[in-house]
Design a binder for these strands. Structure first.
Lengths: 335, 335
DNA sequence: CTGTCATTCCAAAACCCTTGCCACAGGCTT
DNA sequence: AAGCCTGTGGCAAGGGTTTTGGAATGACAG
């Protein structure tokens, strides 16, 4: 307990400054003393106190990441790659989960400020502009998902939903589908709206009439309901695009329950490529939005932003890629 | 930037000690000054620096949690409830992901020591006894999963796998199954071994011969392979118990691919009740091991351990509960 | 009016580390 | 032999907070 740098210094017969210089690899210490100190450190099992270190160096080496819900399969991968990249860049990472709750989001931001993080990746939409400003004013770098315009200390990560949607529509079109339904998510979530609009636009671009569009809830239940409803439609769509994988799995279950075969009668596609896509039965045709890249870029962006002399934010594009699965196939022959 | 307690003190016309007393609710400050300080804090948007606070109070208010892999669906729920409970108890929580890598596990433990956490919940098996001792010697409370005997500063959370397995065997037995196969996980993982042994014991308790036991890998692929293999067995088992949900989903896919119906021809059960169980098709019969309770108890245990005068560890039991789904049904009539 | 006691606030030390600056030793050059 | 580097290591200040002991204030009893 209470092992300090002084103990190490005493054990090695040097000053605390020297120990510090060894530990921080400043190159100011000769090889002899260097190994002397190192062996003392190891022998005593000493680890420098992060808090004292931060305080003394008046320079934070930690980045924060705020997510809506760690249980949402979207996030763990992002978190992991963010943390990995952060570590590579020499940062500690701290995580806050807001549980979709605006007040907990505020708390999360406060926590970041208390920890004097150098930057924070905000991966949630329930954050107010006031909080953003508070962070930026403190010269804390921030990255956002989609929303928020770039400005000083604020960069944006833009996921290319549109390209993803276009790839799906093209894919289905090329497989002969003409009646393609859409199962939406939450109409208040911007990323969901973008997906819907992209679907509509791409349909028109192929000379197809969009619709029907069914409501969903981003969850399994919503998909299930939509799937049951779609099975009863006349004429029945030959393909269904779901706003995300979870919804797609629900849709499939609903269709099957109603006696439709997937993909023989109806093709179904998801979005986001969660692991679900792979495990689901049939496996899902979906779009991979490279969450690992997302997390990594977020860390890079914060690093960039926080150390440049002119911390002007910029925009990053995250690409999307179609991943074919067994939930989709050629359109059935019958008109 | 660099807003400190001194700025607040100056703005409120009091000393830093008074501001500190207000913020920490020591009750040593009169109501007049109290509100004066509070308004200054709010006006300036001040947040105390966590590092300075820790340093000065020489008492940590943070707990750590180390997990193998945040992408493994087992963990997010545990992490979430751990963090929630920690916060309720007044702690900050920090997370480390080891990616199943022993060297990263060591690093994670070091990180916890650097952060001077008050306790750490170790939810991984790749940790050596040396590290445990290192932690305990520093008077850092520790909880483990299954392994590690209780001792000073070390408590154990024991998941009642045996009861879970028994419930499944009984359930299948009552549905007329007599030939019940098992798809195993990694033979080096203790929790996997316990599951297998429990299966064998429960089978014998019901007068049944255990087996066949097929190898698996805790992943989808292993289950798939096992499913394909089981379909070819003669006599074919009427039920398959998988070591976890993911394997079960693979088994189902393998069986279907080989032309067996689930559950009409073969019943399949999982373990751990991931979300997969619900979304899979057919939905999985599985066992819920109450991961939310696990996280919460871990936090409680650390709190208990770290503040008691006699920090002797103890053992906690986490119960398991059968959750019936559609992947299992009565055994087929044919002998 | 003086002495006692609570109450409320402040000054300063302490927490553990980093870092700028200075001191010193030894080897070179001239 | 004197003077200079250069390479090495120590001293001490300082970072933002908590905390301890004591000072100032005011109320009240004697």
């Amino acid at each position: 307990m209470g092992l300090t740098i002084r103990d190490v210094a005493k054990a090695a017969g040097v000053s605390t400054a020297t120990v510090s210089n060894v530990l921080n690899k400043t190159g100011k210490v000769g090889p002899r003393t260097h190994s002397l100190v190192l062996s003392a450190v190891k022998r005593l099992g000493y680890f420098p106190d992060v808090h004292a270190r931060h305080l003394a160096s008046r320079e934070s080496r930690t980045l924060g990441i705020i997510v809506s819900d760690i249980e949402n399969p979207f996030f763990p991968e992002v978190i992991k790659s963010f943390e990995t990249r952060a570590r590579e860049l020499g940062y500690d990472a701290i995580l806050s989960d807001t549980n979709y709750d605006p007040s907990r989001t505020r708390e999360a931001a406060e926590r970041m400020m208390e920890h004097k993080v150098r930057g924070v990746a905000v991966m949630t939409s329930e954050i107010s502009l006031r909080v953003i400003n508070q962070l930026a004013r403190r010269r804390i770098a921030v990255t956002f998902l989609d929303l928020a315009p770039v400005r000083k200390y604020v960069s944006t990560l833009r996921i290319d939903y549109h390209s993803g949607m276009r790839q799906i529509v093209e894919y289905l079109f090329n497989h002969g589908h003409r009646r393609i339904a859409f199962v939406a998510g939450r109409p208040r979530l911007k990323s969901n709206v973008v997906r819907l609009q992209s679907y509509e636009k791409c349909m028109r671009d192929h000379g197809l009439e969009p619709g029907p569009v069914l409501p969903g809830d981003l969850r399994f239940e919503g998909g299930l309901k939509a799937g049951l409803a779609i099975a009863q439609l006349d004429p029945r769509p030959t393909a269904v695009m779901a706003v995300n994988d979870l919804t797609a799995v629900g849709v499939i279950k609903g269709l099957l329950k109603a006696g439709c075969r997937v993909p023989e009668d109806v093709s179904v596609t998801g979005f986001d490529k969660t692991r679900l896509a792979e495990y689901s039965n049939p496996s899902l045709t979906t779009v991979d939005i490279h969450r690992d890249v997302l997390g990594q870029i977020a860390a890079d962006a914060l690093h960039e932003l926080s150390r440049s002399a002119n911390p002007q934010g910029r925009e990053y594009q995250i690409t999307a890629e179609l991943v074919p699965g067994n939930s989709s196939g050629p359109a059935p022959r019958t008109t």
